[in-house]
Design a binder for these strands. Structure first.
Lengths: 311, 311
DNA sequence: GTTCGTTACGGGCAACGTAACCATT
DNA sequence: AATGGTTACGTTGCCCGTAACGAAC
């Protein structure tokens, strides 16, 4: 058994079992990949693939298991090279971050800036996706670190590091009556059309639960995965927005009023997650530190103070 | 990076960094192993070994980490071949069991007999060791399954399957007064010289705790790792023996009297442990089933009934 | 002096690439 | 047709083994 055979298998599974594409990605010729797969099947002693004639369609049950172990092998091989680079080229490498739109747009910029200053030779990649996709990317080691609020808490194969707490804010056109209502309650919110995040995103389920518990049925006129989209529709007066308060930017959002909603909804915790059997390079760990330090400011400036004001 | 390089590294660490022995084990020549190690160091980019001149003495910190990942790689490679064999030669293979002497001598024989009948083509190996050694063997995948009562409960990298409960029995020459004392207490035991297991073996620490809690200081005249040794010295009247009750064999131990001690000591649980990231072949799992079923009888015949009698 | 590790060199295997041949859409 | 996969065959690279050298105990 050879590593190249496993590489062919793993890449094959990533390109929908197209042998030609697999060969391209590996800088090989198709026939070489065919050989690898053939040899692997011979060594394992069973068919690993489901075939339609000559075309490969998918994996047999045995193939699934083999793939799983093969991924782990390659990850560990990656870890070995990472250990090496960490001791020779400590400041050089690649950092692949997975994040939701909100994180990428409103939380990561200062973190990335600080990190890039500290590690100018580390190439940065930001991959966007839904929380569920991010968990998957982290598990398959297609990103190094996933920044995420939901959906990865229960995945045991992921190590999660809690980083900061946040809560929601109401945004509405400046003259909107909800900006003045006192006290502001879930009931009051329920009387206006609301624009907020789609399910699976940014604390949406806790959001809905809060309304359900209060016996209020909110009028969600629009859901979006993306705070910018929400703001856009708020500006066109489709409804009031409920967004993560850290996504309100005083400088750019002067035309929108903002009210902290932390008394009404539970706090959310944003974490950084990574695969448990992944070796974190020094700069990976440093990124986490920077992220935590930087978001500490977020908490003090944006979240804790308004929260205290309402307390 | 190639698998053979990692194999050389791992085997090297198993033979105290003797390159020649490594080569023998791998059916290679010394120079080949030297090459592998050299290439690996080159790829990792750092010294992996501590050297005294040309001799290899140990691993550098980086080497330790690399070794760790390399072991994992090889284990997963092993899992892949295991998956394959499980689907082609389901009934052929190797079963390496780690056990303490007591398990190997008194518990395993009927299990092994049943297993060997079911899988005549599976080669069996029994490795003996202390519980701590067994845990280590299982972690390093030098045994498939470790049968053990202690010392592996807290190791998170081991999966443990509880199998049966047992407790202790007093064994003494037939005329010994302790066989008649009623009620039998820890205090009474404390008045006679005792022979039992050494620390780290077969529930010895719970044994000592029981005495300590009762404020009794037992007179341990001899400790042994091995029930047979204990019985031998009991026969030569050096003291009374306290052994796992399942190690008393009515047919062969007619010259010794036996009294159940389960009211005096806590129950122990014997488990089967294996490395979490190990693929268990069908017959591995079947062995666990047979073990549990077979020891179920032990409980009914030897443990539960006397326990009820005393209840 | 013996055991052990490194280096140099040559032969043999096998991995890859080219190319011609099938299969599927 | 065109895209995708398999098989056959030749060449190159490199992996191992032999052997001579150098260290360490």
């Amino acid at each position: 058994m050879e590593l190249r055979q496993l590489r062919s298998l793993v890449v094959l599974s990533e390109v929908h079992f197209n042998v030609s594409r697999t060969a391209e990605r590996l800088n090989l010729v198709q026939s070489a990949v065919t050989q690898h797969l053939k040899q692997l099947e011979a060594e394992v002693g069973t068919a690993l693939f489901v075939r339609h004639g000559k075309r490969l369609i998918g994996l047999s049950p045995v193939g699934e298991q083999v793939l799983c172990h093969a991924c782990e092998v390659l990850r560990q091989i990656g870890n070995i090279t990472a250990v090496g680079q960490d001791h020779s080229n400590e400041h050089q490498g690649l950092l692949r971050i997975g994040a939701t739109h909100t994180q990428a747009r409103y939380v990561l910029p200062p973190v990335i800036r600080a990190f890039a200053r500290a590690y100018p030779q580390v190439e940065l990649q930001i991959h966007q996706g839904t929380p569920a996709q991010l968990a998957d990317l982290a598990l398959r080691d297609l990103v190094d670190l996933a920044v995420c609020t939901e959906a990865l808490g229960e995945e045991v194969a992921l190590q999660t590091v809690p980083c900061y707490r946040w809560n929601r804010a109401l945004v509405a056109p400046l003259a909107h009556p909800l900006l003045e209502v006192c006290p502001l309650t879930l009931n009051a919110l329920g009387r206006y059309p609301i624009i907020t995040y789609v399910f699976g995103f940014t604390g949406r389920s806790a959001f809905s639960d809060a309304f359900a518990k209060a016996g209020v049925k909110p009028q969600i006129v629009l859901s979006a995965a993306d705070t910018d989209v929400i703001k856009t529709y708020v500006r066109s007066e489709l409804g009031v927005g409920i967004i993560a308060s850290l996504a309100y930017q005083p400088s750019e959002d002067q035309d929108l009023g903002m009210r902290d909603l932390s008394p009404l909804f539970p706090w959310e915790v944003t974490k950084i997650a990574y695969s448990r059997d992944k070796y974190l390079r020094k700069y990976h760990q440093h990124f986490i530190d920077i992220f935590k330090a930087s978001t500490q400011d977020l908490i003090t400036e944006r979240v804790l103070e308004p929260a205290l004001a309402h307390a």
